[in-house]
Design a binder for these strands. Structure first.
Length: 565
RNA sequence: UGACCCGUGGUGUAAUUGGCAACACGUCUGAUUUUGGUUCAGAAGAGUCCAGGUUCGAGCCCUGGCGGGUCAACCA
């Protein structure tokens, strides 16, 4: 239930300072905005949120928390051809799951369509906007290149009256899609392409997920975003680097709108790139649509929903976001940092349990047939309050195939012929016989146990070099376990100019083990419950798991310092 | 041939705003251990893209290079 906590709980008020915090503090010192700090998280509802968004969410809500401000959730829904309520719902669920609360400040760019329209009319009246009837190609040509200035559109000096009439007609649906657009009259010679008379409105005869068929013209993002921030009283518009070049345009629009000194200040930071994965919504959408993964919440996806299903906790994601910091340098963050964050979190909270992934049968020849014993096991050595549980022991067990070697190398100190090891929380056992089938495959181990070592300690003080996990064959729950590996083989799959990122898909990113045995304790587990399978890794119960066929996802393996040679 | 942004160990960040480069991850030792986990102790690894300049002193300031990124969607 700790996952229900809001991010504002906890006492770590001294969050690491970054350049954005520094700028805010400098402004606060100047008394800007009357000391008010107000941020926003502005996703477009055209896809699911990913870990990169989590960074932004943590940053924005973190700023508000640190400086006693507020954060709005605003959907930038200016393009009805790509946006859907399914995405709106998933985004809200993900932000909440991460532990953040936007109160009643849930906004939509579409809330401002009327005001935006009025503002466009104002700009037309001021001679700062005009309707252009040229084709997309011509407009694009006239815009020039970054190196060469653009040239004026022949419609650039149409009178406000005429523009008004045309704009009205656009709104009334009298012009077809693509027939004309409304453009801002800024500067066709600007070195900044975005200032070369950018589009404000286009005709789109599409039904909008919120405004229905009320409009057949829709504002461009660039014409809506800055004003939305302004109307919401946002003081700091934090966004990613690629919008840096848009900033002068946003400022230009807001300067035409504002009535006093207040203007949102945009600050850009570098988006998160994680090694061995892709982070653009376009590519993630492609993976989903072309079925390279099972969906947006496939546990291999870097989406919030994927990470959740994989077994990541909100706390671990927030901790990760905090640790990677915020800068303008764009690089690639090693997934190892993310993995460390979950391990650290899960180590402290995950219920320990024994589960055998690749079973090898063990018969304890001197243990009476039909006899059963219960052993006490610690639920979490990191948290005594989690108590203990009983684990059944009997004559026939399963151990991990990897924990036995017939001809072990020097550094292998698990079970081998003639060798004694400890079964965790149970007894010392010694392997006496290796049973094989006609192919030479080991099918069973015959061992003896030492009754004196009950609980796992020898009264004579003798030691064993290894402790194995095990499960009683008769009592075990059979389960399916899904092992996940990185989705791509390349550290930067999207970073190759001539090779499609899908070329780097890892064919072994999912391994399904259908015959695993877990101790009966997990029977009552609920979807998403976290466990540590001792000596193996962290797992959680998949939402599609059923009591008849339990399914676990491996979140991350335990750190493994022993390397097989 | 343009404009803007960025360059600190392998990776992500820090450096009291000009004072002998710090932290985390990762890696490698060793100790402890009924999880080859955790924990603990320790080590290696950058002299801050390069070259000049200012200064008693530069990762921080200036100049010029070099390298990387972004920008020419009726996408956001």
């Amino acid at each position: 239930m700790t996952e229900k906590k809001t991010a504002t709980e906890g006492a770590e008020k001294k969050a690491p300072t970054n350049f954005i915090h520094q700028q805010i503090e400098a402004e606060l010192a100047e008394g800007k905005n009357d000391g008010r700090v107000h941020t926003r998280f502005p996703p477009e509802p055209n896809g699911y949120l990913h870990i990169g968004h989590a960074k932004s969410i943590c940053l924005n809500f973190g700023i508000a928390e640190k400086y006693n401000g507020l954060t709005n959730l605003r959907f930038d829904d200016t393009n009805p051809t790509k946006e859907e309520t399914e995405y709106v719902d998933s985004i809200k669920a993900d932000v909440r799951w991460l532990g953040f609360d936007w109160g009643d400040r849930e906004y939509y760019a579409s809330d401002y369509f009327d005001k935006l329209y009025e503002f466009a009319v104002t700009l037309i009246n001021r001679g700062l906007a005009y309707v252009d009837f040229q084709s997309q190609e011509i407009i694009s040509q006239q815009r020039g290149t970054p190196q060469r200035p653009g040239i004026d559109s022949p419609y650039r000096n149409t009178s406000p009256e005429e523009n008004l009439m045309h704009f009205e007609k656009m709104r009334n649906g009298e012009y077809d899609e693509g027939h004309c657009v409304l453009r801002a009259k800024v500067d066709m010679a600007s070195p900044n392409m975005h200032m070369r008379d950018p589009l404000m409105y286009r005709v789109l005869k599409k039904t909008h997920h919120r405004t229905g068929d009320k409009w057949c013209i829709y504002p461009m993002y660039d014409f809506a975003h800055g004003q939305s921030d302004y109307w919401e009283g946002i003081t700091h518009s934090v966004c990613t680097l690629e919008f840096e070049i848009h900033r002068p345009l946003y400022d230009w629009f807001v300067d035409e709108l504002k009535t006093d000194d207040y203007r949102p200040r945009q600050i850009e930071f570098s988006r998160l790139n994680l090694s061995y994965t892709v982070m653009s919504k376009r590519r993630l959408l492609e993976l989903v649509q072309k079925k390279y993964v099972s969906g947006w919440d496939d546990p291999r996806m870097p989406t919030i929903s994927g990470l959740r299903r994989r077994g990541y906790t909100p706390e671990s994601i927030r901790k990760f976001s905090e640790r990677i910091g915020v800068t303008k340098v764009d690089g690639v963050t090693d997934v190892a940092l993310l993995e460390h964050a979950v391990r650290e979190d899960l180590n402290k909270r995950a219920q320990r349990v024994m589960g055998v992934l690749n079973p090898l049968k063990v018969v304890i020849t001197n243990f009476p047939e039909g006899k059963e014993e219960m052993n006490q096991a610690v639920n979490n050595p990191e948290d005594e309050s989690m108590g203990k549980r009983s684990v059944p022991f009997s004559r026939e067990l399963y151990i991990e195939r990897d924990d036995f070697m017939e001809d072990p190398p020097r550094k292998f100190f698990r079970l081998a012929p003639g060798r004694e090891v400890r079964l965790r929380y149970a007894y010392f056992i010694t392997c006496n016989e290796v049973v094989k089938d006609e192919n030479g495959e080991i099918t069973e181990l015959r061992c003896t146990y030492d009754p004196e070592t009950k609980g796992g300690n020898a009264p004579d003080g003798r030691k064993v070099k290894a402790t194995l996990h095990w499960v009683s064959a008769k009592h075990a729950v059979k389960a399916e376990v899904r092992l996940y590996d990185r989705l791509f083989n390349d550290p930067d799959p999207a970073g190759h100019k001539d090779v499609d990122f899908k070329e780097f898909l890892n064919p072994d990113s999912l391994t399904i083990l259908s015959e695993c045995y877990v101790e009966p304790f997990v029977k009552d587990a609920q979807p998403l419950d976290h466990f540590q399978f001792e000596r193996i890794g962290y797992f959680n119960l998949d939402p599609e798991s059923t009591p008849e066929k339990m399914r676990f996802n491996r979140t991350v393996s335990l750190r493994e310092t022993w390397k097989k040679m």
